[in-house]
Nucleic acid binder design. Structure first.
Length: 877
RNA sequence: UGAGGUAUAGCUCAGUGGUAAGAGCAUCACGCUUACAUCGUGAAAGUCAUAGGUUCGACUCCUAUUGCCUCAACCA
């Protein structure tokens, strides 16, 4: 068999992905095996793969592939999200480029454009996931706007409405003036902004007095309907019951009193604009104030803005301030830092706005979801655990969820109006049912479908994705079907903490409401991918590498390993391409190990004892590593698991085992050793496979011809067997001896090919198990056990054993003496600290027996070593 | 402002009430020894943030301080 000495990732990766697909390994159907299920966090349908997705999906693929190897029925459901606001914004922008205004289109026309867009770009990201090696069950690919998915959403809306949990209300909501839609509280990002605090003088009616008010938004004075002071503030007691006059528009407004006002802040009095501030709205309701809305839907001023009508709020802010300054109303300005709400999607500054919207009552719904995560007997685990606090805080302070959006792209709200009154509507799954309900409600049998007008708003995207773990298995429409019964609850969910509330918490809520059961067992929360300087990766910074280019350069396997090398759950990942290089390096290492085994000629000859021991040792070492790896997986410490594997391959397998069994140049290898090594190699491939699926599958098939039933992807994870601990510790000792030999060779520039003599004073009474291995790796001409110090030799010590490499007297006696004295000094210092401890009566009385025994052992070891060192020193001097 | 997290080698991070503190990468030195220079061997590198306390013993537990991160929040 001859293989290329260099690994060609590009060609190999596409070959094996096609092979896996052709053999349907990713596809899952319910059977008698234990299921292992993951639903993908659906990326935006028109999105492209970024580093966050790569990390996220690599983790999912590692978990899925491992589960598959463990013999579970692994099912990873992929799909995309219609992402209403983001997608609609993109479509609107594209139409604008073509000179088309969204407002000139009918709903149907717009949706046609949106679907075209979705079909053009949708699924690109899924193709990219294939390049990464993701073993999703593509036959199950779902889209949140698929007919069946939408049907489920509507069904749930109707159901929740019937339960009285969905209601329509006139409320202060977050208005995105750019997208011209409302947003949920979670879609608003509070950003710190440097702004100005304007001090304005308001005249008092029937008086020469003025009152100074501090505001950050002078343009909202047109909406002022009161001034508020604190009743306990004596500075303003003379103003109680009086009226103030709004500058520019000269409207007369009352001065009201409320303890809400902070006496310390600004001037201690507040202008109240109930239409444009949540707190002002509360104050307004309490004091029954008039509500004056001064903005259009794009946040330009309306006719209440007088001469400023039509100006954008920020333009108007400056213009109004200027006029106020000219008319002497503006007393002064100060710089002021405050938090401004911005739209997660459009970045526009959010305008609090009063409007009719649909809400979901959360108070009762969250209860089981809180218990599921936080209780003593919690059913859902968050990794890392610290997010439980965040979760608790949010869930316990939850407010009703605004689920309506003034968008077209999404599920249209199934409310049908038959009149102009606020209550003149029914909620139904379709128009026909709506008609029946409307007729019943009104008693008017003459109503026709044509009289019904469906609400024009669409539902928040998250109102569809919160059903994802159920709806992908058709569990809402058809709750008794085989799939939902088999796959739900799913096992692990892998996602970023940024959507813990948007999505994770809400899936838990809906899971309990609709299945009476949790949607998943474990939630693995990944960190953000940042660059080396800890900056977030973003388009605007241009610091995000192109995912596909990375794969091209380092191979998918290399990138996967690179991403996972340093990504503890919940910790941000400082991404550096050097990590991918490291991943690629691991691939190269494995490939060259394969190459080595292919150039061996295997013959029926006797097995050297060194090989026999080497194999026994590695088998134990492998088992020990396997246990460690299992433990890491159990705790979702994937990077630790990967590092353990990395070291096993690099150090133990390639660095030690292959060196130990490697035959001399052009010499054959015995069959027994060869077979054992290949079997060990295969076990290694199995545990690397979840991380590096392509390369391992390729090597697997290079090692021998395999049928599709024998592919690595569906092989069996190695079984755990007992570990021979003493063999491992004997080798640890032996490896120190080998290091000592290498050190001496290095110091004296003795080439490896020159065999050297070697003598041992075996104070430790170690076994001779590894002597042949030591002889081979140290290229020792002879190994002699002696009792007396060897003169004219270089020496080193492991514990109290002393080793000699005869140099025919060519040694630097002074240097040797110095080396020995340093070692002696160190050991004596160490001994002293141990003895200090042991002579402390309270330590001996208080410490556990095992600890004291350890200290005594340290003491005797140190004493023995000191003895050795002293003898050697004496013989040198 | 509040809550939580975190502080260990140049970098990214493990770590345990009882080993004069570990890994990977990076660095440096030497080496093209016959799988791999995408490599090997070796070396150097830490007052475990600061100050107190508990303890026979603290990097580990407690308190305070400082820095950084995240989340939450209506101070106009």
């Amino acid at each position: 068999m001859s293989i290329p000495s260099k690994y060609d990732a590009k060609q190999v990766e596409s070959k094996w992905y096609d092979y896996w697909m052709k053999n349907n390994y990713f596809h899952s159907t319910p059977d008698e095996r234990e299921p292992y299920t993951i639903v993908i966090p659906p990326p935006n349908v028109t999105g492209v793969l970024h580093m966050g997705h790569m990390l996220n999906n690599t983790i999912q693929d590692v978990l899925i592939r491992r589960a598959r190897l463990l013999g579970k029925n692994a099912c990873w459901v992929p799909g995309t999200d219609h992402a209403s606001i983001a997608t609609e914004a993109k479509v609107v922008a594209k139409l604008k480029e073509q000179g088309i205004d969204k407002n000139d289109l009918t709903r149907e026309e717009f949706l046609k454009h949106a679907w075209e867009w979705t079909e053009e770009y949708g699924g690109v990201i899924l193709e990219q996931l294939k390049k990464l090696g993701c073993s999703c069950d593509w036959d199950r690919t779902k889209f949140t706007m698929d007919d069946d998915m939408s049907e489920a959403v509507i069904k749930v809306f109707v159901d929740l409405h019937e339960k009285g949990l969905i209601y329509r209300g006139y409320r202060m909501v977050n208005w995105d003036p750019e997208a011209k839609t409302t947003l949920s509280d979670e879609e608003v990002i509070h950003e710190e902004r440097q702004g100005l605090l304007y001090y304005l003088n308001y005249k008092i009616e029937g008086s020469k007095d003025t009152l100074t008010i501090a505001t950050t938004r002078p343009e909202t004075i047109f909406g002022d309907t009161a001034i508020c002071i604190n009743p306990n503030d004596e500075r303003f007691s003379h103003l109680k019951g009086k009226n103030a006059i709004v500058p520019i528009c000269n409207r007369v407004i009352p001065i009201i009193e409320d303890e809400y006002v902070d006496v310390e802040f600004g001037t201690g009095c507040l202008k109240v604009t109930p239409a444009h501030d949540e707190n002002d709205k509360i104050l307004g309701d309490k004091h029954k104030l008039e509500v004056v809305d001064i903005f259009n839907e794009d946040a330009s001023l309306n006719s209440f803005g007088m001469q400023f009508e039509g100006q954008d709020r920020f333009v108007a802010r400056k213009a109004v301030a200027k006029l106020l300054e000219e008319t002497g109303v503006l007393a002064k300005t100060e710089t002021h830092v405050n938090k401004v709400g911005t739209s997660e999607r459009t970045k526009a500054v959010i305008e609090p706005r009063l409007s009719d919207q649909w809400f979901l009552k959360m108070e009762e719904l969250v209860k089981p979801a809180i218990k599921a995560v936080l209780g003593e007997d919690s059913e859902i685990n968050l990794f890392p655990k610290k997010f439980e606090n965040t979760y608790r805080h949010w869930m316990e302070n939850i407010r009703d969820w605004n689920i309506s959006r003034q968008l077209l792209w999404g599920q249209q709200i199934p409310a049908y109006f038959y009149g102009d009154g606020k209550e003149d509507f029914v909620v139904a799954e379709n128009k026909e049912e709506a008609l029946v309900k409307a007729q019943e409600k009104t008693g008017n049998t003459a109503l026709k479908t044509g009289d019904l007008k469906q609400d024009t708003d669409a539902l928040d995207t998250w109102f569809s994705s919160w059903l994802w773990p159920m709806s992908v298995f058709d569990g809402i429409r058809n709750p008794e079907n085989e799939d939902i019964k088999y796959y739900y609850p799913t096992n692990d969910l892998v996602t970023g903490p940024d959507i813990l509330f948007f999505w994770v918490a809400r899936m838990i809520i809906s899971g309990y409401e609709y299945k009476g059961e949790k949607p998943f067992n474990n939630v693995y929360l990944t960190g953000l991918v940042r660059d080396k300087q800890r900056r977030k990766m973003s388009k605007s910074l241009g610091n995000s590498p192109d995912a596909l280019k990375l794969i091209e350069e380092y191979s998918a396997d290399g990138v996967r390993v690179g991403l996972l090398l340093s990504s503890a759950a919940g910790n941000d990942l400082m991404f550096d391409e050097a990590l991918c290089q490291q991943g690629k390096g691991l691939g190269n290492k494995l490939w060259s190990a394969l190459y080595l085994t292919t150039i061996w000629s295997v013959e029926d000859i006797e097995q050297p004892n060194s090989s026999k021991i080497a194999i026994e040792w590695f088998e134990s070492k492998f088992q020990k590593a396997l246990m460690e790896i299992e433990d890491h997986f159990g705790k979702y410490r994937l990077s630790d698991a990967l590092m353990a594997i990395y070291k096993l391959i690099y150090d133990d397998f390639c660095g030690w085992l292959l060196e130990m069994v490697k035959p001399a140049y052009q010499q054959p290898i015995d069959k027994k050793t060869y077979n054992s090594v290949m079997s060990i190699f295969e076990d290694n491939l199995k545990i690397v496979h979840p991380f590096m699926p392509f390369l391992t599958e390729e090597i697997w098939h290079q090692i021998s011809e395999r049928t599709p039933e024998e592919a690595l992807i569906i092989s069996k994870w190695p079984e755990t067997k007992p570990v021979n601990e003493s063999l491992i510790s004997e080798f640890d000792f032996a490896s120190e001896v080998i290091s000592g030999i290498r050190n001496i060779r290095k110091q004296k520039n003795i080439p490896f090919k020159d065999a050297i003599g070697f003598s041992i004073i075996n104070n430790e009474k170690t076994t001779t198990t590894f002597d042949e291995v030591i002889a081979k790796l140290g290229n020792l001409g002879s190994v002699d056990y002696v009792t007396e110090t060897v003169d004219g030799a270089l020496t080193f010590r492991v514990k109290s054993n002393e080793y000699f490499v005869p140099m025919g007297g060519r040694i630097d006696v002074d240097a040797e003496i110095k080396k020995l004295s340093d070692e002696l000094n160190y050991t004596e210092g160490f001994l002293k600290s141990v003895q200090k401890k042991l002579s402390n009566e309270r330590f001996v009385a208080g410490a556990p027996e095992q600890v004291i025994a350890n200290e005594r052992k340290k003491e005797s070891d140190a004493l023995a070593k000191i003895e050795t060192l002293k003898t050697s020193l004496a013989s040198l001097q």
